[in-house]
Nucleic acid binder design. Structure first.
Length: 274
DNA sequence: GTCCTTTCCTGACAGC
DNA sequence: TGCTGTCAGGAAAGGA
C-alpha cells in the first residue's frame, strides 16, 4: 500500500527510466481507472504524441508533466508502474498501457483497481480538487508547528484519524500513522484536541523522523509493493508496531495489540502509548 | 464545516 | 476439495 515514501521511490525510479520519452500509443483496458477526462477515447487520443518532461510528487499523488497536459496518478492500494518490452505478455492486472517507443511500454498494474488517473491541462493543476486540499508535506520547512497545533485543536476525533486526513499532513497512510504514534508514545484513540503542547511537538518530530527514514529506505514492502525497477522497499525491517500484533514491544517487552480505529486496523503498544 | 458511513475491488485465508 | 464469509484499505461522495 503505497504511502509517501513508496510513491517517492516510484517517482525517482520513473524519472530515471522514462523522462524525455514520447508516448506513441495509449490503451486503457479498465475504464474506471481514468477519472478524467470522462471519455476514455479522449484520454487515449490526447496523451498520444506528448513527451514526459518530468515527474513530481505531492502527498501520495504522482504528477507527470507532459508537453501539453499533466497526468495526475494515485496508486491507492496496489497500483504500480512497470516498464516492459512490448513483446512481454501483459498480466490480467494491467489496466493502462502507454507505448514509449518501438520497444518499450509503461504499464499500469493494479490488482484491486482502486488507483485513479486524471489527464488535465497545465492551467488546471493548481486548482485541481485532489491536490488543492492537501496539507503540507511532512518535512521540516513544510509542517510548521503552529498551524499543525491549531489544526489538532479543532479536531474532535482520534489522532489516528487526523493523521490519515490528507488535509492536515499529506502522504501519511495506515502503516506510517501507526509507526508515528508509537514513536511519539501516543495512544491512537486519543482525541486530537486533547494533546498537550509538548505532545504535539513530539508528534511533529515523530512524523518528520519516521517519514524521512522510510524515504531513505525506499519505502516499506507489505504484500506487493514494488518501485518502477521492480525493487521492494526496506523499511519493513524497521517497523515497530504495524503487522506485529501479538509480538513483543521492542521498547517495553509487552504485547503489541491490534484494534480498529477510524475503520482501520491499528497496531499499538498499550503500555508505551497513552 | 465537521464527522461518519458507504462504495469501489480482488486475493488471501479461515472455517466448515 | 470446494464453497462461503471476512478482511485488507485511500479517497470521494453523500448524509447527518
Amino acid at each position: 500500500m503505497p504511502e509517501l515514501p513508496e510513491v517517492e521511490s516510484v517517482r525517482t525510479g520513473l524519472e530515471k527510466l522514462i523522462k524525455g520519452k514520447k508516448i506513441t500509443n495509449a490503451k486503457v483496458l479498465w475504464p474506471r481507472i481514468i477519472a478524467e477526462p470522462n471519455r476514455i477515447e479522449d484520454f487515449e487520443q490526447r496523451i498520444v504524441g506528448q513527451t514526459i518532461h518530468s515527474i513530481d510528487r505531492r502527498g501520495k499523488f504522482l504528477i507527470f508533466h507532459l508537453s501539453k497536459d499533466v497526468l495526475i496518478s494515485h496508486l491507492r492500494m496496489e497500483g504500480k508502474y512497470r516498464i516492459e518490452k512490448k513483446d512481454v505478455p501483459f498480466s490480467k492486472h494491467t489496466h493502462v498501457i502507454l507505448e514509449l517507443d518501438e520497444e518499450a511500454e509503461l504499464r499500469y498494474l493494479d490488482v484491486r483497481k482502486f488507483g485513479r488517473m486524471s489527464l488535465i491541462e497545465h492551467s488546471e493543476l493548481e486548482n485541481h480538487p485532489s491536490l488543492k486540499k492537501l496539507g503540507p508535506e511532512p518535512i521540516e520547512e513544510g509542517l510548521l508547528i503552529e498551524p499543525f497545533q491549531l489544526n489538532l485543536k479543532k479536531r474532535k476525533k482520534s489522532i489516528k484519524a487526523v493523521l490519515l486526513d490528507q488535509t492536515i499532513v499529506a502522504g501519511i497512510g495506515n502503516i506510517y500513522a501507526d509507526e508515528i504514534l508509537y514513536e511519539a508514545s501516543i495512544h491512537p484513540e486519543r482525541y486530537a484536541d486533547s494533546l498537550k503542547v509538548e505532545e504535539v511537538q513530539t508528534l511533529r518530530t515523530a512524523i518528520l523522523d519516521v517519514m524521512r527514514k522510510a524515504v531513505a529506505a525506499g519505502g516499506t514492502t507489505i504484500r506487493t509493493y514494488q518501485n518502477a525497477f521492480g525493487e521492494t522497499g526496506a523499511y519493513q525491517a524497521q517497523l515497530n508496531v504495524y503487522g506485529r500484533s501479538g509480538l513483543n514491544c521492542r521498547r517495553c517487552g509487552n504485547t503489541i495489540e491490534k484494534i480498529k480505529v477510524a475503520q482501520r486496523g491499528t497496531h499499538f503498544c498499550p503500555d508505551c502509548q497513552n
